[in-house]
Design a binder for these strands. Sequence first.
RNA 1: GCCGGGAUGGCGGAAUGGUAGACGCAAUAGACUCAAAAUCUAUCGAUCGCAAGGUCAUGAGAGUUCAAGUCUCUCUCCCGGCACCA
Length: 1128
Amino acid sequence: MKKKQTTSKNGEYNHLKIEPKWRKIWDKKKINQTKDKSKSDKFYVLDMFPYPSGDGLHVGHPRGYIATDVYSKYKRMHGYNVLHPMGWDAFGLPAENYAIKNKIHPAVAMERNVKRFKEQLSIIGLGYDWKREINTTDPNYYKWTQWIFLQLLKKGLAYESFEPINWCPSCKTGLANEDLDGPNCERCGTLVEKKPMRQWVLKITDYADRLLADLDSEDYIMPKVIDKVNPHQPGKPLVKRYVAHAIVFDPRNKKYLIIRNKKFGWDTVIIGGIEAGEDVVKTARREVQEETGYVDIEFKRLLGGQTEAHYYTKHKGENRIAYAQAAYFELKSDKRAPIADGEDKDNEIIWVEEKDFVPGKMVNSELPIWLKRLKDPNLGWPKPLLNWSESIKEAQRNWIGRSEGSELWFNLKNSEEKIRVFTTRPDTLFGVTYVVLAPENKLVDSLKPLIKNWAEVEKYRESVKAKTEIERTAVDKNKTGLRLSGVEAKHPLTKEILPVFIADYVLNNYGTGAVMSVPAHDERDYSFAKKYNLPVKEVVVPYFTKSEKDRDQARSDKETVRRTTAYALVMDKKTNKFLCLDWEKFGWHSGIIGGLDDGESFQAAALREIREETGYVNVKYIRELGGEQHNHFFAAHKDVNRYGIGRGMLFELVDDKKIPTTEAETKNHKAVWIEADKMEGWLNLEAFKYMWQVYKTGSECFTGQGILINSGNFDGMDSEEAKKEITDLADGKQKVTYRLKDWVFSRQRYWGEPIPVIHCEKCGAVPVPEKDLPVELPNVKFYEPTGTGESPLAAISKWVNTKCPNCKGKAKRETNTMPQWAGSSWYYLRYIDPKNSKALVDKKKEKYWMKNGVDLYVGGTEHATRHLIYARFWHKFLFDIGVVSEKEPFRQLKNQGMILGSDSRKMSKRWGNVINPDEVIKNVGADTLRVYEMFMGPFDQEIAWSTDNMVGSRRFLEKVWKLQDRVVNKRVVENIEFEALLHKTIKKVTEDIVDFSFNTAISAFMILVNLAEKNEITKTEYETILKLLAPFAPHMTEEIWANLGHKKSIHLEKWPEYDEKKTISEKVVIIVQINGKPRANFEMPVGSNQAEVEKVALAREDVYKWLAGKQVKKKLFLKERILALITD
RNA sequence: GCCGGGAUGGCGGAAUGGUAGACGCAAUAGACUCAAAAUCUAUCGAUCGCAAGGUCAUGAGAGUUCAAGUCUCUCUCCCGGCACCA
C-alpha cells in the first residue's frame, strides 16, 4: 500500500514526521513512567514478557501489547496509577544453540536481540515504563530466582530424586512433563526417552489441591454497595464492623423472611455480628435460628458488600459502616426451634414478597441490589477469584487431573505382602475378577520367591522396557500381560482367590501402580479379560433415566412414592421392532410395565405382564438391562412423584403364538410393534431407548452409575452411595490422586540460572548461604551439552570446586541449571521494585501493587499448562512464606488469538509469510497498525493478516485528521442527532474497551466519524473524539491535540464522560411485526405510547394491507421498539 | 473416549429473544482526471419481479415463542485441552 496524501489546513497527515516527534517528547516528559506511590488507586497491566529471539518481532507479537497499551492509557485517563512494564525472558535453549553454532556468548547475542526488540516495541508507540525493565539473565534478577529456590529447599519443597525422567536426546537435557508435547520434546520434536538420573524436583503436587480449587474459588471481598456513609450524624466518628446478613427465601410461597421491629416499625433481614471462630454462613444460620427459630434452611450462596448500618446511624447516633456479607438460604420446611429469650418481644416475624423490598421502607436499603445480584451473576456478585477464560481453566483442571477414589488392599495367599490398589470405583469391588500390577512395580521384585515363572516375568519386563513411549501409548489398545503364577490374591470381601497379572496397560507412576480389574465395568479391564479369557462379573446395572440430574429433579419437588416394577422389552429380531402398548383411551403409548406380586421375581413378573397384556407366550429371556426409573406418567398426570424401582428384562420373540387376553387387561390398550426410533413422545421413552441401545450394541461393559447387583448386602444400593460404604467395609480409605507430577527442575544445560546448592562429601547437598547469592553463571568456552547428566559447567573446575559452607571441607557446586520457566514464575513481582537489592520486593510496594493481584494479564493460550501453572504455584508458595499478600497472582487474564500469515498459516520464515512491523509502520504508520490490529477481529480469536484490509484503518485515521477543517466554535443550528451519536459512542467505546471488544469500539468510531465529516463539528466535540481515540492512535491524536492549542499531553487528559440522557435521540424507529414478520417501520417521537403508535401504524398502507380482511387477535407493544400484531 | 470453545454474504466480522448481515475489505457503476492512483457518490446475501413488492436465508433437523443467529433437545463438522490416568 502506498502512502496517502491527505491534507488539512494543518498540512498532510504525515505519520513519518508525527510519530517519531511525539515519541521523543513523551520520553523527555517521562509521561510513561510510573510512580511508586500515589493517592490514586493502582492498576497493574502486564504482558507476558517475550523471549527475545534473533528473528525479531513479526506483526502477530504486538497484538496483545497494543491491547494492554490501549487499556493502560484508558485506565490512566481515569486517574489510575497505572503500571505497565516490560522485560525479557532471556534464558533458554535457542540462545544457547545459537552460541554453540556461532561461538558467540549467549549474553552477547541476547543483548543484541533485546536492543532490536526494544526498538521494535517502541516505534509502535507502546508506553512502557522502561525504567523498570527487567531481564531474567541479569544476576541481580536471578539472585532472587535462586533465593526462591532456597526457600523451597528450606520448606522441603525442593528435593533430589533419582527416578527415571524424560530425557531429550537431542537437547541433551532432562525435561519436566510440562515440556512434552505428547511423547515428544516440546521444543525440538524429538522422541523423549526415560532415563534414570539425579535431578532436582519441586513438589508442585503439594499444591495441586489449591491450584485446582482456586480455579473455581469465588472472591467475596466485594466492591462497594455504597461509597460513603451518609452523614446522618455529622461530626460523629465512623465505626466499622463486620456483620453477616441472612436472606431466607421460601421457594414455595416466593417470600422472604423479615423481622419487623414493633417499636420502631421498620423491617429488616436478619443481621448479626460475626463472632470469633465463625464464618458468615455460620453466623447467619445462628442468627436465623435465634431470632426466628427456623432451623431447616439450606445454604445456597454468598453475596456481599459494604453497607451502611442505618439502624446504628439513625438510632444510636453512630456513623457506622458495615462490611457485610449475606448468606442466602432457602427454607426447606417450616420446622422451628424455640426462639431465644426476649428476641421476639420487640420483633415480629413476617414473610414478604420481593416487591416489598423498597428502599426507604426497609432498613436494608441495599437489599434490592443484592437480590438482583442473586439472579444475575454477571452483575458482579459473587465473582470468580480468577477472571480467566473457561478454556484455560479447563486446560489446567485437565492438567492437574484430580480423581477421587479409594485405596484398597488385597492380601496375598502364601505371603505377607499386600497389593495396594487405587480405584475410582470401589462400588464395583464385588466385580473384581483379577488383579494387575504395573510391570515396573517394585512389589513384583519382592514377590520373586513366590513367582514360579520368573524367567518369563523377566522377559516380559524386558519387552516392555524395549517398547518406546510411542508404542506404549499408541492408540491401538491391544493389551499384553503375563500371569504371575504362584501369586494369588484374596478378595477383601468375598475372600475369593483371584489371579494376579503384570500388564503394561497399568502405569507404575499413577495411583499405586496396581489395579483391581473389573472387566464388566471398565473398558481396559474388559478387553484384557476377553483376551486372556478371564471371567466378567456384572455388579452394576444402569438407571433407566438419562442422568443423575433428571433423577434429582424428579425427586426434589414432591414426596416420592416408590414402587417395585418390572419393565419388559420384547424384541422381534426378524423385523427389528419391539413390543409396546397403545393406550387408545388416553392417547398415549408406553412400554410393558407391571408391579411385582408378592414373592415374584422381576423376570417372572415381566413374563406374566407380557402374557397378560399382549398374549404373547413364547418369549426367550436374554438379559437384565436396567435399574431405577422415574415414572413420568404419575408425575405428569397424577401429580405424584413416583419411582418405579425396577429392572428391565429383555426378551426375544420366539414365535407369534398368542393366548387370549382378558378384557380387564386390554380394554384400554392394544399391543403394537414399533421401530425403536419412532418412539418420540412416548412414556418411559428413556428407559426403552436405553434398553434398545444396549441390545443393539451388545455391549457387556457398562461404565456408568447405576444400582448394585450381585453385591451381597449392597444389592439395590445406588452405586455412588455404595462407594463409601464398600470402601469402609473393605477397610480401605478414601484417597485423591493427581495426574500432575512434581516439577523436574534440573536442566543439564549452560544458559540458565545455576541451582544454588553445594555438594559436600560429608554434609551432602548444602544450600548456598543467602548472603552468597547470586551464584553467578561463569563464562565457558564451550556451551555444548555433555549428554552425561552434567551441564557444561562441570568442566570449569575453578567454578565447580568450592568449599562446603557447613564444614568448610572440599565440595563441588551443583552444575545443573534451572529450566526457562523459573525466571518467569515470579517476574511480575520484580517490576514493582526492580532495583531492590535487599529483598525480592519491598513489602509495602507489594501490598500496594499486588492488591487483588495483577489487574490485567495478557498473553497467548500456549502458556495454560506451563507458565501459568508454575507462576501460580510459586505465588502460592511465596504467599505461604509471607512474601506476597494475595493467594493468586493474575486475577484477570485475557488471551490474544494468534495472527496468522495471509495464507492462514502460522507466520514463519519457513512459509515466507512473515510481516515485519517496521515495514508496516514505515508505510502506513504505527497508529494505523494499532487501529488495524484492534479492528481486525475479536481479540481472542485467531485471524489471518491482510495488508489490503489495513487500508480501511488508514482511511479512518485520515478522516479523523481531515475533521480539523470542519471544526467550528459554535454551531449555528443545533445538531441533536450528532450529539446523541457522540454520547452513544462514548458509552460504547468505554464499555468495549473494558470488555476487550476493541473491534466493535473502532467500528463505533467509524460510524461517528462518517457522520461527523458530513457536518460541522464543535471544538469540544472534536476534542472528545480525540480523547476517546488517544489510546488507539496515540501519535496522531497528540498531534491534532497540539494543533488545537493544547500544551499538556492528551494522554494525561481525563476520559470523556457520557450523559445517559443525551444518548437518547428525539425519535425512535418503531417496527411493526405482523404475525412475527416485520412489515413496516416508521419514526415516532421518543416516549410515544401504544395508542399513539397504533394510530399511526394502522393508518399506514404497508400495515393495513397485511391486516385487510383479518381480525387482530392480539397486540403486543414494546415501548420505543416494536408493535406486534397477531391476526387469526 | 471425556472435557472446553466454535460454525452468520465473495472475505474479516456485527447483532440486551425484536428490521440478520453494523463496521471494514473486495467488487460494480458514476464524478473528478489527458490517463491512472487517491478521493467523492451510489449499488452490493440468494431468488422471483419492469416496478411496487414478495419469498428463502445464520452448519443440519426438531421444539418453545406473537417473534429464534440468540433459548431447549438431537445430530454433523472444525479448533483446543486430557487420554491404557484405573
